[in-house]
């Protein structure tokens, strides 16, 4: 009886997975394996690739200063921007969850920045704010502070990029809102009857109930931040400058592949990134046992 049921389950499951499987085998797997192969070749995009074994990897790890610098810069960006984004998104989502008029308008206001994506307009607007004589420094000058050129000095430009990505916290906020929507209201009622305060409610109910969504936002923010390309491209000069202050890992990889005609090398960089992101994701998945609570788990 059980085995029949199980077989049926296999069938149904694969039926549900069919579109994804087709996509995976026809569109994704080939190019992925292709890039893995290319990472073992010298490939300038325009002539056929030449097999060189692990030479690209050797060069990356032993001779490439830009690789190390861009990796460190990317780590810095990830560790700054992921928590900032998530904290902002969660705080605003909680504030805009309920119990206040004109919620829709407010939510939209906070989401609009994310609508702009990486548009050209952003680059202009950001310059108006963070330039040496921009809005931010004019504001600071009221307090007698002489601010630096946030958008063009190599020491500060990364913070401008972090502020851009934090500013666009909208999608994480929306996901939190959707998650909050799923928290059954009767849980709050019950705890209110028990006399629990707002803070206690947050830690006892909201956070655990929200943990699958928080987990999702964390994983996705990590993956996306490691691959951050657009903010560096939009704010910087598109070539990693000034100096290498905006040389994010993915930007470096893109330049190597498309501008410097070294797609084999770029592919090797990409697979190194995949391993790094994979390790971080695995780490988050492993720790999730301790802090993520699913409705499908026993004994909740």
């Amino acid at each position: 009886m059980k085995s029949v049921r199980r077989r049926e389950s296999n069938w149904t499951a694969y039926a549900f997975l069919t579109p994804w499987l087709i996509g995976f085998f026809c569109l994704t797997l080939g190019p992925m394996l292709g890039s893995l192969y290319l990472s073992l070749t010298q490939y300038n995009l325009l002539s056929p690739p030449q097999w060189i074994g692990t030479e690209n990897y050797r060069q990356i790890f032993t001779q490439d200063g830009t690789f190390t610098a861009s990796l460190l810069l990317t780590f810095k960006y990830v560790f700054l921007s992921v928590p900032l984004r998530l904290i902002f998104a969660l705080a605003i989502a909680l504030a805009l969850n309920k119990g206040i008029r004109a919620l829709g308008i407010y939510r939209t206001v906070y989401y609009i920045p994310s609508l702009l994506g990486g548009s050209v307009a952003i680059a202009i607007v950001w310059r108006q704010i963070f330039d040496g004589s921009g809005a931010l420094n004019q504001f600071l000058s009221w307090f007698g502070i002489q601010g630096p050129a946030w958008i063009s000095h190599p020491d500060y430009i990364v913070y401008t990029i972090v502020s851009l990505s934090t500013w666009q916290f909208g999608s994480a906020m929306v996901i939190f809102l959707a998650g909050l929507k799923q928290v059954p209201a009767d849980l709050y009622e019950a705890s209110q009857i028990d006399g629990a305060g707002k803070v206690k409610q947050f830690f006892r109910i909201t956070l655990p109930m929200l943990s699958p969504v928080l987990f999702f936002n964390l994983v996705m923010s990590i993956i996306n931040s490691f691959q951050a390309f657009t903010p560096a491209y939009v704010i910087g000069d598109g070539r990693g400058g000034p100096l290498d202050a905006t040389m994010f890992y993915t930007l470096y990889l893109y330049l190597k592949g498309f501008s410097f005609f070294d797609m084999g090398y770029a592919s090797a960089l990409a697979w190194i990134m995949l391993v790094i992101i994979g390790a971080f994701t695995a780490l988050v998945f492993l720790t999730s046992r301790f802090w993520v609570f699913y409705g499908d788990q026993e004994g909740r």
Partner: peptide, 8 residues
């Protein structure tokens, strides 16, 4: 140098 970067 800053201006050269922000105003190429």
């Amino acid at each position: 140098p800053e201006m050269q970067v922000s105003n190429p």
